[in-house]
């Protein structure tokens, strides 16, 4: 809270304001990529998890690409609106889109205007394992309790919107442990899940670590299981699904993509810039603050591989669970 840093911040702010104006004119003369604003089109609104991710990732990329980067929210239809918009733009590298499981679900359901092979995954920025959480002072003391109870009667599981990644997580979990069909109660955001979990209105919630960090720390919420291969360093006592006796690894991954047809050199330029930006301390702090490891970041190759696997898995899961629309 030093005076100097405020001044610096304000000065920086002014510079950032003046930068695009001055820089824009300068770079236009070069006629190279990028020479105008890059848009990243997101499937949800400002202030949400994916919005925050995109802004953090773009922060330093502006410097290395010497151009303005705008995050453009285009919510609607689980990524359909965003994909419609991106599809309507020229594939010249100036329109990037966020890429989340939600997009894949829409593509798998045939609701998206583009096919899976038109996606060119660019980079991954967060690899946020899904967790099942229970109330700290509730009737469950761990995942074994939950599984036992879930086999006896339908339990109330809360997650975000129906047909989305949380729903798939919940239903997959139930299937894997052989429990009774749960009562899935959708909520609009992680905060609502936290409140209702503590309030006793739901018994289990599908959440990510960052969404309930303060409550876990204070003991009001207990992380029962992490659906990943390894335990999270911030939650050493929380067993993995494997520890608990079933195999289920689901993460909320967030990354970016462009559409096929974008020139290769531009794809490479974008990839390099974003990777560099995410390896910077500002982004790294954001990751660790959300309980995520630096390994959340993945380059084009690794991300593409994961997306392909994920797509197949989502298709299979949707069919298996009877969720295909």
């Amino acid at each position: 809270m030093k005076r100097r840093s405020i001044l610096r911040g304000a000065a920086l702010g002014l510079l950032v304001l003046a930068g695009p104006m001055a820089g824009g004119a300068e770079v236009m003369a070069q006629d190279s990529f990028p020479s105008k604003t890059i848009e990243i089109v997101n499937l949800s609104g400002a202030g949400g998890g994916s919005d925050i991710f995109l802004r953090m990732a773009a922060l330093r990329a502006r410097k290395s690409l010497k151009t303005d980067i705008q995050v453009l929210p285009k919510p609607g239809g689980l990524g359909v609106n965003a994909m419609n918009y991106v599809n309507g733009k020229p594939r010249d590298g100036y329109t990037v889109m966020s890429l989340l499981p939600g997009h894949l679900i829409s593509i798998a359901n045939g609701k998206a205007p583009i096919g899976f092979d038109e996606l060119v995954p660019l980079v991954r920025g967060t690899d946020d394992p899904q967790l099942l959480m229970v109330a700290g002072n509730g009737s469950f003391t761990g995942i074994t309790d939950v599984i036992a109870e879930a086999k006896r009667r339908p339990i109330k599981i809360g997650g975000t919107h129906v047909g989305g990644i949380d729903h798939i997580t919940a239903v997959s979990f139930i299937k894997k442990v052989g429990a009774q069909n749960p009562i899935y109660i959708p909520f609009k955001s992680g905060s609502e899940l936290v409140t209702n979990l503590i309030g006793g209105n739901i018994e289990v919630a599908v959440l990510n670590f960052g969404e309930a960090e303060s409550q876990i720390e204070s003991g009001e919420i207990q992380a029962a299981v992490v659906l990943a291969k390894d335990r999270m360093s911030v939650l050493p006592d929380t067993p993995t699904s494997h520890d608990a006796g079933f195999d289920l690894n689901i993460s909320l991954v967030r990354g970016m993509a462009v559409l096929k047809g974008t020139p290769e050199d531009r794809i490479a330029a974008l990839e390099t810039a974003f990777l560099k930006s995410m390896n910077h301390s500002v982004y790294q702090n954001y990751l660790s603050g959300s309980g995520l490891a630096p390994s959340s970041i993945a380059d084009r190759q690794a991300w593409s591989a994961q997306i392909s696997d994920m797509y197949v898995s989502i298709q299979d899961t949707l069919k298996e669970l009877g969720m295909a629309q």
């Binding site: 400002a46 925050i52 802004r55 960052g210 720390e217």
Partner: peptide, 28 residues
Amino acid sequence: ALGIPGSATTAVILGAMIMLGVRPGPAL
């Protein structure tokens, strides 16, 4: 106090806090 937004605008303010590395809650 809880990291739970009390209104639509505070939801965005909360997002800004997270981006700035401030974690609201009892710890704060």
